[in-house]
Design a protein around this nucleic acid. Structure first.
Lengths: 226, 226
DNA sequence: TCAAAAGTGTTTGCTATACACCCATGA
DNA sequence: TCATGGGTGTATAGCAAACACTTTTGA
């Protein structure tokens, strides 16, 4: 064990944390992952997964580690969102939080509340519980980023499983934009991007014509479009 | 005086700084403000203005304060860019730097090297000196942000003086995009934005027809366009 | 044979681009 | 009167939006 207060500095230092806003599409809704806080402050409240930066750890690694520790989720798409540091946002001490924005297809979800948090659960963004700290503000910024990026990138593909139908892709866009889209125009647009290709497989579900399956040409890249 | 190492914590804390990439247009080129470092590390090298966050200070206030202290510049447009925190980026201790991106019209410049830095100077972005820390990477990200925002916001107006001619505005866009623009199309586009209005004044400079002066309708807002 | 979702083209309107000449001034 | 940058309109092409029916399957 390390003695308490063993780390001393000439000038006061803030603590640094990361927080992650992880989105997915579940039950035809945009949802995000929250954990219930085990300790003070805001004990029992829902909060974004996240925690303190290790002193030799890269920021992005910290975000991924905390996400995995608290929720068991790994292998998501991650990008830095913004840093929050208003004095007083954490009652314990001055805390600077580097917020990340993450996406995952719902197939890949194995959320089990892990050690650090009492409980982890998905919530529809339209029905969030009261949140700890300034996490509501962070979530708002993350949603805005997500929707803004639809216009000029293929970011929405990070919400798709490995193979998917054009109707499923359209449904994701309709959920994110909260608008109905014309089927023919959408398919024309999606194919013109040249980012997906037919696998040759079909998906037969229900008593109707089977749908062609597609996959991403570049599963690990976000492309800028238009 | 405070005793050395007077601030102690149970776990190690990184230091937090802000850095500012301040752009302006000078001599028909995009330029940015650098300071020459007075102390170690990277003593004598050029670096972005910035410095350590006071423990009760908001991040944005820190960026503005350090800019003012080191260069005498104030009243600029400021937005958060991204946070840099790779372990080892500062040889002294772990440092997390919240980078800001700033714009100012060249009229408003009163750069005098202030107390904290040995010297402050403008450099064309196309001819930067060797830089301290990872500041080259930060500047690259700032330029990308600036150019990307031209497409969907009125951010370039933050580089214009209080009143300006359409030709001056076009020149700024041409510098930022590094491309020539058609005069008639540019003017049609700029006026269609409905973000500027003629002042009624004219600007007579040189032996040719005088130019109408314009001003922003909303000098303090960045509008999203298209 | 019926219900349900998959799949498919054409027309129309709008926005972006290309392009050349006259105007007002100071020297 | 000449050189200089300020100011103006139209025609065309390319992209985005609107719109309805046929196909394939399982029950």
């Amino acid at each position: 064990m390390v003695a308490p207060h063993a780390y001393c500095y000439e000038f006061p230092h803030p603590a640094v944390t990361t927080d992650v806003v992880l989105f997915t599409i579940r039950n035809v809704r945009l949802q995000l992952l929250l954990i219930r806080r085990k300790g003070e402050p805001f004990k029992g409240d829902w909060a974004l997964p996240g925690g303190f930066l290790d002193i030799d750890e890269d920021l992005e690694d910290c975000a991924l580690r905390e996400l995995e520790e608290e929720t068991g989720v790994s292998g998501v798409y991650l990008e830095q969102l913004r840093t929050y540091g208003k004095p007083g946002r954490d009652p314990r001490e001055r805390v600077i939080s580097v917020a990340y924005f993450a996406l995952t297809p719902s197939e890949r979800l194995t959320v089990k509340a892990a050690s650090d948090a009492a409980e982890a659960a998905w919530f529809p963004v339209a029905a969030l519980p009261p949140l700890a700290f300034d996490h509501e503000e962070i979530i708002r910024a993350a949603r805005e980023r997500l929707v803004a990026k639809l216009d000029y990138s293929t970011i929405a593909f990070r919400l798709m499983p490995r193979t998917f139908t054009l109707s499923e892709l359209q449904e994701v866009y309709e959920i994110l934009l909260d608008a109905e889209l014309d089927k023919r125009n959408f398919r024309k647009w999606a194919l013109a991007l040249e980012q997906i290709q037919a696998t040759g497989e079909q998906c037969r579900r229900g008593s109707h014509r089977p749908a062609r399956l597609y996959r991403l040409k570049h599963p690990d890249r976000i492309e800028f479009i238009k």
